[in-house]
C-alpha cells in the first residue's frame, strides 16, 4: 500500500494523463452510428497495436548475445506490426466500401 501511494505521488502526471485519456476515449466514441461500429472496432484494434513501440524498445535494449530476449522481442515485433498493419488495412478496406457510389 505504501508502495502504491509512493508510486502515485512519484508519477502524478501519469495518473492525470490516464484519467484524462479515459475521458477522451469515452467522449470520442460517444454517439457513433451503428453503421460504423465494425470499422471503429477494427480501427481501435489497430491502435492497440501501439504495443509494437514497446516491442521495438525491447529489441533495441537487448544484448545481441541474449538470444532468448532477442527471440521474444523479435516475435513481439512481428505480432505487433501484424496487429497494426493488418488492422489499419482491413479498416481501410471496410471504409472503402462506404464511398459514395454514383
Amino acid at each position: 500500500m505504501k508502495e502504491l501511494i509512493e508510486f502515485i505521488s512519484n508519477n502524478l502526471q501519469i495518473v492525470y494523463i490516464i484519467i484524462l485519456a479515459i475521458f477522451v476515449g469515452i467522449e470520442v466514441i460517444k454517439s457513433i452510428p451503428a453503421v460504423l461500429h465494425t470499422p471503429l472496432m477494427s480501427g481501435a484494434n489497430a491502435l492497440s497495436g501501439v504495443v509494437i513501440v514497446g516491442a521495438i524498445l525491447v529489441m533495441l535494449h537487448s544484448n545481441p548475445t541474449d538470444y532468448l530476449a532477442l527471440g521474444l522481442g523479435f516475435t513481439a515485433v512481428v505480432l505487433g506490426i501484424l496487429n497494426v498493419v493488418g488492422g489499419f488495412a482491413v479498416t481501410n478496406r471496410m471504409l472503402e466500401m462506404f464511398k459514395k457510389k454514383k
Binding site: 494523463i17 485519456a21 457513433i32 472496432m41 484494434n45 501501439v50
Partner: peptide
Amino acid sequence: MLVGGILVGSAGIIL
C-alpha cells in the same frame, strides 16, 4: 503507448 492504450481501452469499453 500509455495514451494510445488507454484510448483503446476506454473506447472499447464504451463500444
